[in-house]
């Protein structure tokens, strides 16, 4: 262990030195590369990447999206040989950051890292752009970990008991969510698919939801497995269903909603996207680096250990097709979503 720590220290010091070093070297290095690029647009494009690639994460620092972006960046950096600083641009459910990338220069030096929620503004009817207005470089991670979960004093311990209870007391079982976000969509879909009526109450983000459930201030929430696994082992929280097509091998004992007769699939996929007009070369180069990272066993282990994610690589075409599919499956709840928020 000591050895590993020592290595870590060395690593840190090296990183610091490197930072200082590249700062010393960069004025000259930078100007020479600048010279070649100002030499005209005829310069061969295969030189990408020549400088740092900004990875914009449209949510604040902290949380799974930010952590996953930093994880991917730290591996893709090694593949591409340039720094990939993660830049948080938060606000308006991610649209501020998404807008910054979408309207930014399409040169491959500004990428967006986000997940399925990127499609929500369009589904909610707030913005009319969606992933079609970007160029996907690929998908790198999937989260088949969304659980419907309750606390141990709610009076129901299985999905069926919950549905029965909800039918017996329409509008009285409280579902904690955040208005305008993914959890609201899940809540509305649950009401529709199970044919029940819940009291959908705004509670906030993940931390607020877990606090509310642990304090018995709400009855049922949807949340990612990794964030509540301790609560499940202590028996304080009872998972009702996994909202995924198949059981997750990382926690095989939690049944899916589908096998319990409820047609609900709400996974998340994390992707990298560039502005629409970004050259093929840049997109493909970046995508290849994503592929190499996803295939790196260390990356796989970190993704599984941290948020129980499934590393999956999809190339630009597959990713675009997949995103379209997911969007269509979500669009069937669009009416419910807009009706609830207007």
């Amino acid at each position: 262990m000591k050895n590993k720590t020592l290595k870590a220290i060395l690593g840190t010091t090296m990183a610091a030195l490197l930072l200082a070093g590249c700062s010393g070297g960069s004025p000259s290095g930078g100007s020479s590369s600048g010279g070649s690029s100002s030499g005209g647009s005829t310069a061969p494009e295969s030189s990408y990447p020549e400088s740092d690639i900004q990875m914009i994460v449209p949510v604040g620092a902290g949380g799974d999206t930010d952590a996953n972006a930093r994880l991917l960046a730290s591996y893709a950096e090694k593949e591409l040989g340039v720094a990939i600083p993660v830049v948080n641009v938060k606000g308006s459910s991610g649209t501020v950051g998404m807008e910054q990338v979408r309207t930014g220069e399409a040169d491959g030096y500004q990428a967006l890292f986000f997940h399925t929620e990127a499609m929500l503004p369009k589904i909610a009817g707030i913005y009319d752009y969606s992933l079609d207005d970007f160029r996907l470089a690929g998908v790198c991670l999937q989260a088949n970990t969304t659980l419907l979960i309750t606390h141990n004093d709610s009076g129901f311990t299985t999905l069926q008991e919950f549905i029965d209870a909800a039918k017996a007391n329409p509008g009285n079982i409280e579902y904690g969510m955040a208005v305008g976000g993914y959890p609201q969509l899940v809540g509305l879909a649950l009401e529709k698919e199970a044919g029940i009526d819940l009291n959908l109450v705004d509670i906030g983000g993940n931390a607020d939801k877990i606090a509310a459930l642990a304090g018995h201030n709400t009855d049922i929430i949807n949340v990612e497995y990794a964030l509540v696994k301790d609560y499940i082992s202590t028996g304080e929280f009872i998972p009702l269903a996994l909202l995924s097509a198949e059981r997750n091998p990382l926690f095989n004992d939690i049944p899916t909603a589908k096998e319990q007769g409820l047609n609900m699939e709400f996974g998340k996929f994390f992707f990298v996207a560039f502005p629409k007009d970004t050259p093929d070369d840049a997109v493909n180069t970046f995508s290849a680096a994503m592929k190499a990272s996803v295939e790196n066993p260390e990356f796989v282990k970190a993704a599984q250990d941290s948020y129980a994610l499934t590393p999956v690589y999809m190339d630009p075409e597959e990713a675009t097709k997949y995103a379209k599919q997911v969007e269509e499956s979500l669009l069937k709840y669009a009416d419910l979503f807009t009706a609830a928020n207007n």
């Binding site: 930072l19 590249c22 700062s23 100007s31 600048g34 100002s38 900004q54 720094a83 600083p85």
Partner: peptide, 21 residues
């Protein structure tokens, strides 16, 4: 400029000097 871009990794707007610095 040096401290923030190199040490803190902040990308300041390059503006018309883009490609030169």
């Amino acid at each position: 400029y040096f401290i923030f871009t190199k040490f803190f990794g902040i990308r300041l707007p390059a503006g018309i000097l883009k490609g030169i610095i």
